[in-house]
């Protein structure tokens, strides 16, 4: 469904943020993209959705194909029309609009009111909390509620593929469980995901396949269950040694340097 072939992305014509990233996401799959801060995960998502252009960036090499058709450097609004929605990090709800208005904006391409209402009901069934909060100004909702609203807003567009950036960021463990529960249900309904996440335990719980990024490159990839058992991944992302003990942060930093060098 989605293919990135040797994608290079540059900001302000100088900063090369992605250095030949290749990723494949098949229909119905949930693919997780892991990596430390600054690895290029968010830039990868922005390159796919076209929002990189709003930050003076562009795809300068390689290709991004959605259903076999190129979408790189396409206007973000046109990418959505092709069935791909980007849930951005930082809980970017439309703060001065109500929860329901946010959802309606998500489904703004629907011409028929009956269909729009059906989609609203689907979102409310999936996340009953949003129905209770439908008249609440989005800026005054809690972090977890805002994250659910963002997912709901993406679902309103009924996309083929949702790319979602750090849904667990800054959330309490119980809320993370709720958010990933919703993602799991959507996956079971057939939605395809490309998920960027630093909470690897949560990501492994839902992902079918994983890529690890470092310094703008893919350095590791494999099926999620195998990656969860990978010693390097366990060491770096879960902070555990092969004996199951906790690893010191100093050693983890050493691993990071090694990975950069390998990359």
């Amino acid at each position: 469904m989605l293919q990135l072939n040797n994608v290079e992305a540059t900001y302000s014509d100088v900063i090369l943020a992605l250095k030949g990233v290749s990723i494949t996401v098949d229909e119905g799959q949930c693919v997780a993209l892991l990596g430390a801060n600054g690895a290029g995960k968010s830039t990868t998502l922005k390159s796919i959705s076209g929002t990189i252009q709003s930050e003076d960036g562009e795809v300068t090499g390689g290709s991004i194909l959605l259903d076999g058709k190129p979408i790189h450097n396409m206007e973000a609004s046109d990418v959505v029309r092709r069935g791909l929605v980007h849930v951005m990090e930082g809980r970017r709800v439309l703060r001065h609009m109500t929860a329901e208005q946010n959802l309606i904006v998500g489904g703004h391409m629907v011409r028929n009111s009956t269909e729009l209402n059906q989609r609203l009901e689907h979102v409310y069934k999936l996340m009953p909390r949003l129905k209770e909060l439908r008249s609440r100004t989005a800026g005054f909702m809690s972090g977890g509620e805002q994250q659910l609203l963002l997912i709901g807003r993406a679902v309103m567009a009924q996309p083929k593929l949702i790319i979602i950036d750090e849904p667990s960021l800054g959330l309490a463990p119980l809320m993370i469980k709720d958010v990933f529960g919703v993602l799991k249900r959507l996956k079971d309904e057939g939605t395809t995901f490309l998920l960027v996440e630093q909470n690897s335990a949560a990501a492994f719980g839902i992902a079918d396949y994983c890529y690890v990024m470092e310094n703008g490159r893919i350095v590791l990839d494999g099926p999620a269950d195998k990656m969860a058992e990978n010693e390097d991944v366990k060491e770096f992302y879960l902070g555990m040694t092969s004996e199951g003990e906790r690893k010191s942060y100093r050693d983890i930093k050493h691993y990071r340097r090694r990975k950069r060098w390998l990359g």
């Binding site: 929002t51 970017r92 703004h108």
Partner: peptide
């Protein structure tokens, strides 16, 4: 819906375009 689209643009250009609004 066209009005809400314009209100979304008023709030945040990047978010609006990430939702398919021109």
């Amino acid at each position: 819906r066209p009005g809400l689209r314009m209100t979304a643009v008023a709030e945040d250009h990047v978010v609006a375009s990430s939702m398919g609004i021109s």
